[in-house]
């Protein structure tokens, strides 16, 4: 990684690179490596027992399953939001554009208590829903909604610049060739946005899987019902079962690496398609 630069007359490569690598190693790489080293304390069968125990499996299933579902909702809702923000003019558009980032900027604990109070049985939205027989707070549905909340910005913000830059000529070309508006959207526009849409989806999914603060308040945290994997890590830690906590963390971390790999692929795909056409 630190091979000498090919050609540059600028100074400071050694210093900046040295600083970067030192800091990166000390703060990020060594601590993360420690996680894997710690897992090595467990034998393979112990590791497997831990991650396949009922409670762990359930927590992982809740985190991954609900995060996937929430990311799907974010994909659809994100597309609708981005379409409205980019293609239409309506009063308050700029304001709505700005507040898309709030789930990203709002501290998770604040989001957690706000969503819980909102959807509690006597809450602004919880009460009407309860009268319909739908219980949100302290159920998996609550977890799902919290995950939808934190995933909102990802699809919108990855697709938005691509949709803005999309050449209006390709829509006109499709129209001239006899495509209906619907055909133009589904066969030309959406496929052009696909790399960005998938990127946004993956980011929202990854964020929701690891999410802690906004979820634990509304989750109810019943083992085997509404307990998410990050919470189980915290619980194992408080019981001083470090190895168990670490095993769950490793599973989640491996998943994170997978997502990163997928995202890099997506980015390369988007870049090769964008090459030189415009």
């Amino acid at each position: 990684m630190s091979a000498a630069p090919k050609r540059s007359s600028l100074p400071g490569f050694g210093l900046s690179m040295g600083l970067t690598l030192t800091w990166l190693s000390l703060l990020i790489l060594i601590p993360l490596a420690g996680l894997f080293v710690k897992t090595a304390d467990l034998s393979l069968s112990q590791f497997l027992d831990t991650v396949t125990s009922n409670r762990t499996l359930h927590a992982l299933r809740i985190s991954f399953g609900l995060a996937f579902a929430a990311a799907l909702v974010n994909l659809v809702a994100g597309l609708i939001i981005v379409w409205a923000l980019v293609r239409y003019r309506f009063p308050g558009r700029r304001l709505f554009d700005a507040i898309v980032d709030i789930p990203f900027a709002l501290p998770t604990a604040v989001a957690g208590i706000a969503l819980t109070t909102l959807f509690a049985q006597n809450g602004w939205l919880g009460a009407p829903l309860a009268s319909l027989g739908i219980k949100v707070a302290f159920t998996p549905l609550g977890i799902f909604l919290a995950m939808v909340f934190i995933g909102i910005p990802f699809v919108v913000r990855t697709v938005q610049p691509v949709l803005i830059d999309l050449d209006v000529e390709i829509e006109e070309a499709a129209a001239c060739l006899g495509a209906s508006r619907w055909q133009t959207i589904t066969r030309v526009i959406i496929p052009s946005l696909t790399p960005a849409i998938l990127t946004g989806f993956a980011l929202a999914f990854a964020r929701a899987v690891g999410e802690y603060g906004s979820v634990i308040f509304i989750a109810g945290n019943l083992p085997n019902v509404s307990e998410i994997a990050p919470l189980l890590i915290v619980i194992r830690l408080s019981e001083f079962r470090y190895a168990d906590a670490t095993a769950i963390a490793v599973v989640m971390l491996v998943f994170s690496f997978l997502i990163i790999f997928v995202l890099n692929r997506l980015q390369r795909w988007a870049q090769t398609r964008a090459l030189a056409v415009s």
Binding site: E169, I170, A173, A174, C176, V188, S192, R273, A274, V277
Partner: peptide, 14 residues
Amino acid sequence: VGFVFQHYALFRHM
């Protein structure tokens, strides 16, 4: 009407 656009407007994903 067949229309050929200045920047071709080819569908890049096809």
